[in-house]
Nucleic acid binder design. Structure first.
Length: 193
DNA sequence: AGCACGATGCTCT
DNA sequence: GAGCATCGTGCTT
């Protein structure tokens, strides 16, 4: 067990988003250890980022983002979905990395049962698979006692990483809408070539 | 394989 | 009252 320390999350958000690829997201649920390797992330950086939930300043919803790094920011959206972020940078600066996809590696059968077909590619799909809801908002990702944490994984080489615009920011103005702040691991089967 | 759309309810103005 | 950091379905190429 090699839990990522708070200093890791205190780094610039783009660095954290890139370095989280390949890391192991672990969830202790009903005494069972569920885990997946992170394969897609997005960075949301400060009140100046018009795609960030903190664009209009601090509210009750986004308060965790203003706190110290290494905590879980879990928000509710579209009337039915929960999404998981890791808070980054110094306390007082609202920034976080949205975890958009994982590849299940532990508790695969349980994950498959919680998610039809075991599909965990999608920010609301992985939270459903791991049983993450508003209850987990504000949990310390650096403390396994919280039941939700991230461990160091296999480093992912630059050749396997793609960057692009963040997903779903339909009404966000440029340049924020198009900044390449999304990071994803190219699937093994598509690497041939 | 890709696009369009409806579901559904919390959060903030 | 408007606006979502989405997902599943159903229909079109």
């Amino acid at each position: 067990m090699n839990v990522l320390p708070r200093e890791f999350y205190a780094q610039p958000t783009l660095t954290v988003a890139r370095q989280l690829l390949g890391a192991r997201l672990v969830r202790l649920l009903d005494g069972q250890r569920l885990a997946g390797l992170i394969t897609e992330t997005e960075a949301y950086i400060g009140e100046e980022d018009q795609g960030c939930h903190a664009r209009s300043g601090r509210t009750r919803r986004n308060a965790v983002m203003y706190g110290p790094p290494g905590y879980a920011y879990v928000y509710f959206t579209y009337g039915m979905h929960w999404c998981l972020n890791a808070v980054t940078e110094a306390e007082g600066r609202p920034a976080a990395v949205l975890i958009r996809a994982i590849e299940p590696v532990e508790g695969v059968e349980i994950i498959a049962a919680r998610r039809r077909g075991g599909d965990t590619r999608g920010p609301a799909k992985l939270t459903q698979a791991l049983g993450i809801t508003g209850t987990e908002n504000g949990l310390d990702l650096c403390d396994p006692a919280s039941g939700l944490w991230i461990e160091a994984g296999e480093p992912v080489a630059d050749e396997r990483v793609r960057r692009g615009p963040r997903i779903g920011l339909y009404t966000v103005p440029e340049p924020w809408k198009s900044l390449p702040w999304r990071f994803l691991v190219v699937p093994e089967e598509k690497m041939i070539k």
